[in-house]
Amino acid sequence: MATEILPTPRGEILPALPGQSPEAIAAWLAEQGEPSFRAKQILEWVWKKKVTSYEQMTNLPAALREKLARSFRLTALTHSKTQGSEDTTRKFLFKLHDGRYVESVLIPANPALYGEKSDRRTLCVSSQVGCAYGCKFCASGLAGFTRNLDASEIAGQVLAAEQIAGERVDSLVFMGMGEPMANFKNLMEAIALITGPETLHLGARHLTISTSGLAPQIRKLADHPQQIRLAISFHGATDEVRSQIMPVNKKYPVAELMDALAHWNSTKKQKLTLEYILIQGVNDGLDQAAILARHARNIGAKVNLIPYNTVDGLVWKRPAISHCRAFQDVLKKAGVTATLRIEKGHDIDAACGQLRLKQETAEGIV
Rank of each mutant, 00 (worst) to 15 (best):
E23M: 04
I25K: 06
I25E: 07
I25A: 09
A26Y: 01
A27E: 09
A27H: 10
W28H: 04
W28K: 02
L29N: 08
L29A: 09
L29G: 07
L29W: 07
A30K: 15
A30V: 13
A30F: 07
E31M: 15
E31C: 14
Q32L: 08
Q32C: 06
Q32P: 04
G33R: 06
E34N: 12
P35H: 11
P35Q: 08
S36L: 13
S36R: 14
F37A: 14
F37Y: 15
R38T: 08
A39V: 00
K40D: 15
I42N: 10
I42F: 08
L43D: 02
L43T: 00
E44R: 15
E44I: 13
E44Y: 11
V46K: 06
K48G: 04
K48D: 11
K50F: 00
K50I: 00
V51Y: 08
T52I: 04
T52Y: 02
T52H: 03
S53A: 14
Y54M: 13
E55K: 05
E55P: 01
E55M: 08
Q56M: 13
M57N: 00
M57F: 06
T58W: 08
T58A: 13
T58L: 08
N59V: 07
N59P: 03
N59I: 03
N59F: 00
L60D: 04
L60G: 05
P61A: 12
A62S: 02
A62Q: 06
A63K: 00
